[in-house]
Design a protein around this nucleic acid. Structure first.
Lengths: 148, 148
DNA sequence: CTAGATGGTCAAGGGGATTGACCATCCTGT
DNA sequence: ACAGGATGGTCAATCCCCTTGACCATCTAG
């Protein structure tokens, strides 16, 4: 019985995540970046601070290095990222965002904020804060897998 | 400022959804259903009450009718569902779960409950309840899109 | 300085989605 | 009652992205 109640959380969270991804993706397209998929955005998240290696992107996305490498190829072709030689490790390469990549990241942040904004009215500030705290306390593995 | 704080919700929810899908999928495999993917499970959700048409499954999953039809083909081949003629509409077909399909659905429910159980200790019963209420109040479109 | 671990790419193959064409049946208006 | 459109579904071809497998270069430990 609590069983039943507890498990209903799962579809709620999954449905919310689905809607969220779609809203952010749509928002990013509306802002003029119509040649990328959500998976690219997830890669940007990992790239944003200081760049990352292909292997790290692969781990973050939960795909093989080869798949991540192809994804980076595409992002290079479209001008969002650059492959630079790694400063200290000659076999490694550092993938970093270009100016266009940063612009797209900002657009995604805006779109995410837009998607979440109406929540404040529905739930109230306090609940929003608690919600964030609760979620943070659960399993934030940090990984975001674009494909199920 | 509140901008930044609000938007941090998005990665939290997406990360949680990612972990959740993986946990449930692993749980289902552990229970002996190792020939299906999460997307199949999402179809089961829509199928569970009284069956559904291919078009409804497609809408639920956010894919084309053709893709849903192929997915149903596969589930039929593996013994999880059956295509039956629709009782009142001769062009339509009703896809319903077989006994094996129901067994798998129960396994998924158990796996979901397992995944959520530790949360009660982390958050407490009250917070769990509030969390569920909050989530329900947000955008439960009900759609679950397996592929981003 | 060899041996293995690690970062990355190239190439081939496959699974699952999409687009497009098509058929059968239902429904609506005249 | 029946023409015309909407709806439910399938077949076929193609495409996109991911995976497996082989391979090279460099780093690191004994």
């Amino acid at each position: 019985m609590t069983e039943n109640a507890d498990s209903s959380l799962v579809p709620l969270i999954l449905g919310l995540a689905t809607d969220l991804v779609q809203a952010v993706d749509a928002g990013v397209r509306d802002r003029g970046f119509d040649d990328i998929r959500p998976a690219h955005g997830f890669a940007f998240v990992r790239l944003a601070p200081d760049g990352a290696g292909v292997g790290e992107i692969a781990a973050h996305l939960g795909v093989t290095k080869q798949a991540a490498s192809q994804l980076v190829d595409e992002l290079v072709r479209k001008g969002y990222v650059e492959r630079r030689p790694h400063p200290t490790d000659a076999r490694a390469r550092l993938v970093v965002l270009t100016e266009r990549g940063w612009a797209c990241t900002r657009a995604a942040d805006e779109a995410a904020a837009d998607a979440v904004r109406p929540w404040a009215e529905l739930l109230g500030e306090r609940r929003i804060r608690e919600l964030r705290e609760d979620l943070a306390r659960l399993g934030p593995s940090g990984r975001i897998r674009p494909v199920w």
